[in-house]
Nucleic acid binder design. Structure first.
Lengths: 231, 231
DNA sequence: CGTATCGTTGAAATATATCAATCGCAGTGG
DNA sequence: CCACTGCGATTGATATATTTCAACGATACG
């Protein structure tokens, strides 16, 4: 891991934190301006841990480039990925003292890191910032709740379709999706096995819904068909 | 649904909101005292809707007695219950304008209702309350994330065991659990079918882990065995 | 006491997991 | 430039947990 200061960066442009979600009741934009120049830039290698479950949540992170997974594991190694964080996304923000999940770099990536205590101190005096922090947590909650529906009640095909649709939704008008994560990561995110994920990709391609250009590049051929599969 | 004022009640005793979770970084207790006497008491009948997904989130709710389920449904009727809320629990608190899930009374129940705008107004001036509201959302997020692990990676038996263990954990030292919800509710919470839930209960009883006194009353015979099944 | 609703149990079907082999691509070294 | 190697992805065959379909039982209620 390497560190360098990045005074010009702005860890708190919350507008981009979760572009797929509807706007929350609060407008974090105002608060963002207060945080020009905060944070240090760090680089992480593939599979490097950024923080671990149960560790003190002393920092807040923002993805500059690359991708991050947050996850939990059971004793016997079964893993559930809670979310993927792509460029622009915030992660690691906790109301409590400790991290509830672990975070790892999916590939080599650059991360902006900011002390939590700084934000908390400022938030105690700035209601706008306080609301922005809350809104960020609320967005994560909304994503988690949508994911509960997926894991609890959707078929393998619907899970994969929902996943691809959500990724496509992040770049509106863009039917070309680059998968930063492996099949194992996707499987652990969708509550499936790699084999089922692979088979489902193949099936979607056979049905003319998507086209695969190498296993990390998906082109959505029929958005309508994909959304129909989403349920 | 019936309404009556309850000046002596305190919707904001957040201490009891989620007793199974570890204490968050903020201490809501101080903020709670600010809210003596807020809210109106309402009663809901079995299966009555308290609020619907997408509706304006103008109120915050607290369970006085009975139980509430929050859930989402897909077009074809598949339902995923996000959480159960028992006496003392807060629910319906949103950072955004709209409810992300629907809420229904599981049985006849009494609910304390408080205007959200009141809380928001006060929170803008009270950092403590602001933190308390945030902590409440963070607790919900933590519960959702634990549930992701359950739905994505645990077996039917582990799901049921985890569910029973969590319920028992709400009344420490109490091995007697009263199930306020039907088998269908449990199934929709655990991402299973009623039949599988029923069979799993039977199996746990056969294995000497639990004892059933009628389908709504469970006695945990071996806490150790139950926790081992939890994984 | 009859009726409705919910829960349990059984048998069969099926979606997904598991086990195992092959494929394909990227990097490496001859 | 081409074989070699290694790891991830795909495909196939089989196993299995859970669902589905169906019948029966229990409990609550009027």
């Amino acid at each position: 891991m390497t560190v360098q200061h990045a005074r010009s960066a702005n860890i708190y442009d919350l507008r981009q934190a979760s572009p797929t979600l509807p706007p929350a009741g609060v407008r974090p934009d105002d608060a963002c301006d207060l945080f020009q120049g905060l944070g240090a830039r760090m680089s992480f290698d593939r599979d490097e841990e950024i923080f671990g479950e149960g560790e003190p949540a002393d920092f807040v992170y923002r993805v500059i480039s690359g991708a991050v997974r947050t996850y939990r594991v059971l004793n016997d190694g079964r893993r559930q990925i809670g979310d993927f964080h792509l460029a622009g996304d915030l992660f690691g923000l906790e109301a409590g003292r400790e991290h509830m999940l672990s975070a790892e770099a999916i590939g080599r990536c650059d991360i902006l890191v900011c002390r939590r205590s700084t934000l908390f101190g400022l938030a105690a005096r700035s209601p706008d910032l306080g609301q922005a922090l809350w809104a960020q947590t609320a967005r994560e909650l909304e994503r988690a709740q949508a994911h509960l529906m997926l894991l609890g009640r959707k078929s393998a095909c619907e899970r994969v379709a929902t996943f691809l649709g959500a990724l496509a939704g992040r770049q509106p008008g863009n039917r070309e999706i680059t998968l930063h994560m492996s099949r194992q990561d996707i499987a652990d995110y969708l509550g499936l096995t790699i084999e089922t994920v692979s088979r489902t990709f193949t099936q979607l391609q056979a049905d003319g819904v998507i086209a695969l250009n190498g296993c990390r590049h998906v082109r959505i051929v029929s958005i309508g068909a994909l959304e129909r599969l989403t349920e």
